[in-house]
Write a protein that binds this DNA or RNA. Structure first.
Lengths: 339, 339
DNA sequence: TTGAAAGCGCTAACAT
DNA sequence: ATGTTAGCGCTTTCAA
């Protein structure tokens, strides 16, 4: 199956066929109001007939504006990030922008490579979630280069960002667990170095526990953000007094924890309560539904995109904390009164 | 926060500073072997110092090769498509290509728009899943334009594609259900017009039922591919004899069906068996684990990308059917012997 | 092994 | 309302 001609007509071909100058064809596509309706129609007819489509490389190169933004996210297999992407994508498209996404796998090296690649494509700005906003070489580079960017999910005092208030949200969850009678709560996260969100949630939960006078929650760091290690889990449950609730730093991890516990013969929530963080849609459909903190992911993406486009227009971007919501599901039961 | 300078150095700046011609700088990045190691080093040093990165618009425009491929998928919120994307992305990156993805929402209008946008960006080829491969204006256009493409998930005799054998896979599942004693099986799908995969799975299941001498399975078309309509479900279960198993055309739909049934007071698999199709990872972690047909999604993406890059090299692409696997979970129980 | 020059497709600035 | 011209950053002849 050898490829066919693949001769794309250029603006010059259209100009010739329509009997106008190249500049006029360009105007027909960019500022049609400037043209006499008559000429416009003629150009449009010719263009349609020859299936002409303006070459974005040419216009981007010449005008210095690609109307394309870049996005770098840890993984799209986490539906939360996928939603965020789709929110940004919809907003971008509605405003005449294209998006180029890359995944970074929670890896700073890939973060840097992703952003470099996006820069090479001349994106006008970047939406991204980084492992650690406070010490990110990539963010520093972006800032030095003067390339506009907005963080998603990361919270930062020094970079524009759109997120929830992770500490407050984690605090809410911990308070609620306490309200259900839990006092021995363990906090399950992935590797903290790869997610400052997880770290802030941990902090928020700890602060809340302190405020309530609960014993300091144990911290169980798992080797992955999305899969629980059964050994660590078993070990933690051997401690005395054993935790009665596990607060996981994201939903994928919570689901994995629940599955591993089940493999250990421990049913949730009868034997142990478990909750997550993220509010992925699937969480509500599980049996029982996962107790979690919902983040408005689609909105985070759309809002961050809106902020970025505002910056591109010369307006200044503000950092925003969008509201979270506690979703009481069925994976948390009231704790038995302590012995 | 007004943007900083944003003066990207060009190849000319590097040439001047390194005391060579622009052509030599270009060679340093594209065919370094051609240069005297000495000159190469000098150029590299200057380039690094001034943070030079080659502008892909310039090189793409001049060379006619952007080393970028496009991808159009229904939605990345379905983890199956997200995996497929990541498989393609990894393969593309390993081969020096970038990917630009767009979502189409199972909508032919958006499919067309997505592909047009990708073409405008001068992608060298496209990976895509369309609603209906047999009558897709978008595919026809791609073919006429001579732009290489490979379908993912869609099966087609006339377009290069990478998929599973949907009919056989659905047949396998139906046979297995029958083996569990189910004879009244209903097939649950989204709108067939938006997914020829769903249609083929339906066909495969029906063919298998016929072969086994089972009564023809009822078909329950839902208004969405990812959410079950409780009214339709309730209605279907009122029929006599009522189905004992619901075979859903994808996992997201199956999960939704299970949740809706539960809301109706019907527990799976005690009251009713349910199974899905796709093999998303989360399916195995549900309680009970979802019975489904696993597709090698990451591999579908990677393989399709490999085929596309082969075509770009002038080799011819072949259509491939990757192996599927039946994942017996816990959402299907043996059917009670019929009354 | 390197350089000079032309031009990819488009648009901005300056005409008219 | 439209045309002319120059040039964005790069690579590709062709020449040396």
């Amino acid at each position: 199956m050898p490829s066919k001609p693949l001769h794309r007509p250029s603006i010059l071909d259209i100009a010739r066929d329509a009997g106008v100058s190249p500049a006029t064809v360009s105007r027909a596509f960019n500022r049609p109001q400037l043209l006499k309706p008559d000429t416009l129609q003629r150009i449009e007819r010719v263009a349609r007939k020859s299936r002409f489509r303006p070459n974005r490389l040419g216009s981007g190169l010449r005008s210095g504006s690609t109307r394309t933004i870049g996005m770098a996210l840890p993984t799209l297999r986490n539906p939360v990030f996928a939603e965020c992407f789709e929110g940004a994508e919809a907003w971008a498209h509605d405003n005449g922008y294209s998006i180029m996404v890359t995944t970074t796998g929670y890896d700073v090296t890939r973060e840097a490579a992703a952003v470099h690649s996006l820069i090479d494509h001349q994106v006008e700005g970047v939406l991204l979630a980084v492992a650690n906003a406070a010490r990110s070489a990539t963010l520093r580079e972006l800032a030095e280069d003067g390339l506009p960017y907005v963080l998603v999910y990361n919270e930062s005092p020094s970079h524009p960002c759109v997120s929830v208030d992770n500490m407050a949200a984690a605090g809410d969850m911990l308070c609620w667990l306490a309200g259900q009678g839990h006092t021995r709560i363990a906090l399950v996260t992935g590797p903290l170095a790869a997610s400052d969100r997880a770290r802030r949630r941990l902090q928020g939960a700890r602060a809340c526990a302190r405020k309530l006078g609960l014993p300091p929650p144990a911290h169980l760091p798992m080797p992955s953000h999305t899969a629980a290690d059964v050994g660590i889990l078993r070990q933690a449950l051997r401690e005395r007094p054993a935790p009665t609730a596990l607060f996981c730093s994201n939903d994928l991890l919570a689901v994995s924890v629940i599955a591993q516990l089940r493999a250990l013969g421990l049913h949730v929530p009868q034997a142990l309560s478990v909750c997550g963080f993220d509010g992925m849609h699937l969480a509500a459909l599980m049996v029982p539904p996962l107790t979690t903190v919902e983040q408005p992911s689609r909105d985070i993406g759309a809002t961050a995109c809106a902020q970025l486009l505002a910056r591109l227009r010369g307006e200044s971007a503000v950092s925003l904390r969008l509201p979270h919501r506690l979703m009481a599901g069925g994976t948390v039961a009231a704790a038995a009164p302590s012995p």
